[in-house]
């Protein structure tokens, strides 16, 4: 009965959203063209980036990017704050009688590491996981990481950029964590290391944003504007820093949420 009411509510809300959005799709007024025309004429010359998307979010609209990185930093801080408390709450009231009791050795291992980073035999919660997954993700992980760095560093030339490269890097970190071999201690999949990388990248971003002031250009001013050899140098730098920050931040979120053991 309750399910039926939810279904009816779903259909009603979908219908109302359609009713509101349909006039927007059907209207025929022309798009404003002035910003587009300016970017088409001056975008590449002003910023040096062939990919105009990265020229916009790291040159013309860089304050939006700063806001987004602050949002991510807040999300990571909130996750740390909530999860350190929630671990105890989740453990209570959860039926663990079906699982075998842990030996002292296993308890020590679980206390030391997140379960996500353990070798397959030691994970209690992943009893159905086969070696197939571990082998495939372990091999694919470094390749995905490399692709993420490629997206970051070539974001000014081809589709990609800091955020895109960062999330692909985070996927690579998850792959590495899933495919962790027995006894391997990869520092890249430890939550504490990722947390520090993220904080350091944010500090670097602030320093890079202030560096233009020394050249008399103002906050987020391009200090390399007069260096004609690498016109997009500042965009490459910002892309790299943002990619590191997003990759470490989202990787941290996933490992902190998924790799937690109920014990």
């Amino acid at each position: 009965m309750k399910q039926k009411a939810i279904n009816v509510l779903t259909i009603i809300s979908l219908a109302s959203v359609t009713l509101v959005l349909l006039p927007l799709f059907l209207e025929n007024s022309p798009w404003p063209l002035s910003a587009r025309n300016y970017l088409e004429l001056h975008g590449v010359g002003d910023s040096g980036a062939i990919n105009l998307v990265s020229a916009i979010y790291l040159g013309f609209r860089v304050f939006d990017t700063l806001g987004e990185t602050i949002v991510l930093l807040t999300a990571v801080s909130g996750t740390i704050g909530v999860l350190t408390r929630a671990g105890a709450v989740l453990a209570e009231g959860y039926d663990t009688s079906g699982t075998p009791a842990l030996t002292e050795q296993e308890k020590k291992v679980i206390m030391d590491d997140h379960t996500f980073t353990l070798a397959g035999e030691k994970r209690r919660s992943h009893a159905l996981r086969t070696h197939l997954l571990e082998v495939v993700t372990g091999v694919l992980g470094p390749v995905v990481l490399l692709f993420g760095f490629y997206l970051m560093l070539y974001g000014h030339l081809s589709p990609g950029g800091g955020f895109q490269g960062g999330v692909v890097t985070a996927s690579g970190i998850i792959f590495l964590a899933l495919g962790n071999r027995i006894g391997a201690k990869n520092p890249l999949i430890r939550a504490s290391v990722l947390d520090r990388i993220e904080a350091a990248a944010f500090l670097l971003l602030i320093l890079a944003s202030l560096s233009g002031i020394l050249m008399g250009r103002g906050f987020f001013g391009n200090p390399l504007q007069d260096v004609t050899a690498i016109p997009a140098g500042y965009i490459i730098l910002l892309n790299g820093i943002i990619g590191l920050k997003v990759g470490a931040g989202i990787g941290f979120l996933c490992i902190a949420m998924v790799g937690r053991e109920i014990s």
Binding site: N51, V53, S54, L151, P159, G160, G161, F163, Q164, V167, V168, A170, S171, I174, I250, L253, C254, M257, V258, G259
Partner: peptide, 20 residues
């Protein structure tokens, strides 16, 4: 650009978090 983000975040990372 948006397609890369959507594929990595929507199909990759968020699925991992939800299944976790």
């Amino acid at each position: 650009d948006v397609a890369i983000t959507e594929a990595a975040v929507g199909a990759g990372v968020s699925t991992v978090v939800f299944i976790g």
